[in-house]
Design a protein around this nucleic acid. Structure first.
Length: 493
DNA sequence: TTTTGAGTTGTTCGA
DNA sequence: GTCGAACAACTCAAA
């Protein structure tokens, strides 16, 4: 006598350990059909960007390998889960489907539709929280409303106590064989997620190891080397102090619960200073805050959180006399040719590695929005395409935050000065030199403002401004005045 | 209901 | 070089 099989639907939770949906399926004791369904672009979901596709390929490949070593197969499908899952359940006789919740509007709609259809054919679907310390609806103000300011949000979240410990990792999985009459499976290579001509992923490969094992290694390395200095140095772009866990979190190769418990109760517990731990946890808090915002505002990546910004006078892309200069500015920003080394270094790090230091993200984003007055959605889309950690909640919420249109946003007068930011957070110029080799020999005194260097200094460093490295495409003081005037037009009366 | 205090990440100016 | 004030009111959350 054997139990009807369980289907485990993997999505943004590509791991085996601390995976509550998989854990629940294993506890049920029946053979497993583990599936991943590619459905990007379906029903209002957003097609993945290039860097995310690269990551997903390796993450799926790693998960399939890890799974097969303990007895189960990861089956790949492409299409509409609302058709594929009921069909698979019918063909296999499965009575239970397990998955981890996700929080985007289109994704929630798909999931509830799947759940309904399964229920109609007598199949029980169970969903779990495996991606957040707290569900978006758990953290509320005293009045029972979602919080719109980070600090009270995070305080309220922490006040709920320790997050639950992560589920134990299954040592063995019992895979069910793929049933006849089930939907046809895909091969990972069919999806062509890896760039071929040209292969632009070399820098990504050098920087990251996608997959659960890579995530665990990264966390261990961070706890030993980054965390102890995190409170003091996380803003310094040239120091390697940040965790680099974002893309692993994005694809659920590691969960915030696992991170929390490793830091708090693991081998390193008590070693790192409490300020560093609190600072690091609050970064996890921002991730939670963003997911909560997306849950409550499904249009977060498209629509201004603060509707007053609908009237903001962005540079127009459509036929106007300025359209050409806007296009040129946008291209210069994307390619790291704005003439501001701190901005350009960040944009080149992004292009090369699929990652950008958090402090530099703010500087680069502020430059696009405030110096070039280009709509934050353009920047959001570029990051969506190029960041390995491009996350529907974090990316949208952070861009809106910089623009001033978001929740708890930066005040309009906070316009980063890229030269001052460089001097402050890359004082020895190490970060700029790493990503802009043509400036490597320039004296530190001028590294963040090469146009201020005397001709002799430039010559000594082998720099010809306007040839080997661009002059600034806008002048800071004038751009700042222009942005302040533009923001004045949408201020409350 | 009204009031009060607080709010991730900054820059510039003038003393 | 360093420091505090202004930016300019606004919104949120809780008492």
């Amino acid at each position: 006598m054997s139990l009807s099989p369980s289907i485990v639907w993997f999505r943004d939770d590509l791991r085996i350990a601390g995976q509550p949906a998989l854990h629940a399926a294993v506890l049920r004791g029946a053979p497993l059909l583990c599936v991943y369904i590619r459905h990007d672009g379906l029903a209002g979901t957003r097609a993945l960007g290039g860097a995310s596709r690269w990551w997903l390929h390796h993450s799926l490949s790693a998960l399939a390998g890890a799974m097969s070593r303990i007895g189960a197969e990861l089956h790949l499908l492409a299409g509409d889960p609302r058709e594929l899952l009921p069909a698979l359940a019918a063909a296999s006789g499965a009575s239970h489907v397990f998955w981890t919740r996700r929080y985007g509007g289109a994704e929630i709609a798909i999931d509830s539709s799947v759940k309904q259809q399964l229920a109609a054919q007598g199949v029980e679907a169970s969903s779990f929280n495996g991606q957040l310390l707290r569900e978006p609806w758990e953290v509320k103000s005293k009045a029972g409303e979602p919080l719109k300011v980070f600090t009270p949000y995070w305080r309220a979240s922490l006040a709920l106590g320790e997050p639950a410990p992560p589920a134990t990792a299954p040592q063995k999985l019992a895979g069910a064989s793929w049933p006849a009459r089930a939907p046809a499976r895909a091969q990972l290579t069919d999806w062509a997620f890896l760039p071929q001509k040209p292969d632009w992923a070399a820098g990504l490969r050098e920087t990251f190891t996608p997959g659960e094992a890579g995530a665990r290694q990264r966390l261990a390395h961070f706890i030993d080397h980054g965390l102890p200095r995190y409170g003091q140095e996380r803003d310094f772009a040239g120091e390697n102090v940040t965790s680099l866990l974002a893309p692993h979190l994005r694809f659920g190769e590691i969960s915030p619960q696992q991170i929390w418990h490793a830091v708090r109760h693991g081998e390193a517990a008590g070693r790192a200073d409490s300020r560093s731990v609190a600072k690091f946890f609050s970064e996890l808090g921002w991730r939670e805050f963003s997911s909560m915002l997306l849950f409550n505002n499904p249009q977060l990546a498209r629509k201004n959180f603060n509707p007053r910004f609908d009237a903001f006078p962005w540079e127009q892309a459509d036929p106007t006399s300025r359209a050409a200069s806007r296009a040129a500015s946008l291209a210069a920003w994307r390619q790291g040719r704005t003439g501001y080394p701190m901005v350009d270094a960040g944009m080149r790090e992004l292009w090369r590695t699929g990652y950008m230091h958090n402090r530099v993200r703010m500087i680069a984003a502020s430059f696009l929005i405030k110096h070039l007055m280009i709509d934050w959605r353009e920047g959001e889309e570029w990051f969506w395409d190029t960041l390995c950690d491009a996350d529907p909640a974090n990316n949208a919420a952070s861009w809106q935050w910089v623009a001033g249109s978001g929740a708890d946003a930066a005040p309009y007068f906070r316009i980063f000065n890229p030269v001052l930011q460089g001097a402050k957070f890359d004082p020895d110029g190490r970060y700029v030199r790493r990503w802009i080799p043509e400036l490597a020999k320039l004296d530190t005194k001028f590294i963040h403002a090469p146009w201020q260097a005397p001709q002799a200094e430039l010559a000594k460093a082998g720099i010809r401004l306007g040839e080997t490295y661009p002059r600034p495409i806008v002048e800071h003081a004038a751009a700042r005045e222009r942005a302040l005037a533009a923001f004045a037009t949408i201020r409350a009366q």
